[in-house]
Write a protein that binds this DNA or RNA. Structure first.
Lengths: 166, 166
DNA sequence: ATAGTGAATTGGACTTTGTCCATGTCGTGG
DNA sequence: CCACGACATGGACAAAGTCCAATTCACTAT
């Protein structure tokens, strides 16, 4: 996130997506979409959205907060947690819990994909398995549940960790 | 875990599996197996193993500690965490992180299965999908990882929660 | 049966991750 | 440009897990 250094304008000035021309298209779309859903557009939310859109890595809430704070130093942890929670509820961001530690947030919510995580260093990669994992669960194995979603986590050792271990 | 009330004997007496005849077969097997692997058989480890073997639910570490403490009141949380970690390392117990909160421990490590969790109440059921989920990840999608395991979590609403929501 | 020794246990401090709430600020519709 | 209600703040709190020095104890060899 070293690509552009800038400071968000004061909140009292009305900022629209077009005021910040270096936003990637996907994000102004996102912000616009949320605004029409009644989302109030605050500097904090804008910055959180930008951080998520930045690198397509899977950040923890604290990492999001750290990066957001570089753009908007006074942003609070609580706000980051709130905003992430809202984005998840709105279906714009996925929450993945791969290790029982910090939840990670995946901005790539609109393309079906699964995760490949390194048991050593924790890195996560998006992967695209073939076939629909939901289809693998026959009705007789659903116990009356209404199944709405599958989360598949492949675990293994990434190339870097294999190299250092050897 | 109300079925049998008893107190573990003092550690200084040598206790073998056969001293505690009401252990289910599976467990004395487990303990014996671990002992031949060089595991020191302490009262604490014994109790943790018994708790896991008790109901085949998916307990959190704290739940394991609470149940273990009914049998061995002075057992410490650290020991429970240690023991669970060892059992996981030894491959006798599976660790599942379904909700980004507490990790849960699944004693059913020797039969391949996956999990079905209710998004409302958090209940977990073991399910057996058809086919091998590992096979769904083509080599081209592995990015040099050595993939060793897959964890599949189906999410949905259980019958009880569907009923109360309606 | 007993002693020695290194592994296991203890409990308490500490860290990480996340939630809650009262107060104050600011985005937005009018 | 005002008012109002949604949003942000930060600090206290809670939950989940780790770490460590001191102590206890299981196992092996005698």
């Amino acid at each position: 996130m070293d690509k552009v250094q800038f400071t968000i304008m004061t909140n009292s000035r009305h900022i629209t997506g077009s005021d910040i021309p270096w936003y990637p298209d996907g994000m102004s779309d996102l912000l616009e979409r949320l605004r029409t859903r009644g989302w109030r557009l605050t500097a904090q939310r804008r910055v959180v959205a930008e951080v998520l859109d930045g690198d397509h890595v899977h950040l923890t809430a604290d990492e999001v907060h750290a990066r957001a704070a570089r753009l908007l130093p006074e942003i609070s942890r609580a706000t980051v947690y709130n905003t992430l929670g809202e984005l998840v509820t709105l279906g714009e961001v996925l929450e993945v819990s791969t290790d029982g530690r910090a939840r990670r947030y995946d901005p790539n919510a609109h393309h079906a994909h699964q995760h490949l995580v390194c048991s050593h260093c924790g890195t996560i990669r998006d992967v695209h398995p073939v076939g629909d994992p939901l289809a693998a669960l026959p009705a007789g194995e659903r116990f009356g549940f209404t199944v709405s979603d599958v989360e598949v986590t492949y675990r293994g050792t990434c190339p870097d960790c294999s190299a250092t271990a050897a």
